[in-house]
């Protein structure tokens, strides 16, 4: 399960989501600013008050850390 916590005004979140789409990764997109419960959940899981945060099968990645995301999702890029 892949979940992206973002805000509607965050460009880096949009870049991350586009990257996932380009690699055919299905994900749940949640707006952490809209709902207090979602916000609390993001802070509890990640210790972060900053977006994007991505949850990949229970593991938390903060920011668009491509290396880590590629590793966890087994994305292989061409050289």
């Amino acid at each position: 399960m892949v979940k992206v916590y973002s805000t509607p005004t965050c460009v880096y979140c949009a870049t991350l989501k586009q990257y996932l789409k380009e690699h055919d990764i299905a994900f749940e997109d949640v707006d952490a600013s809209k709902d207090e419960a979602v916000f609390e959940e993001m802070v509890r899981k990640s210790g972060q008050m900053s977006v994007p945060v991505i949850e990949i099968n229970g593991e938390i990645v903060v920011g668009f850390d491509k290396e880590k995301i590629n590793e966890l999702l087994n994305i292989k890029e061409q050289q």
Binding site: T7, T9, C10, Y12, A32, F39, M49, S50, G63
Partner: peptide, 18 residues
Amino acid sequence: FVGRGVSYCPVCDGPLFS
């Protein structure tokens, strides 16, 4: 405290501080 309250991007993170 970067990412834990300190931010350089109000447009990204601002909405989280409602």
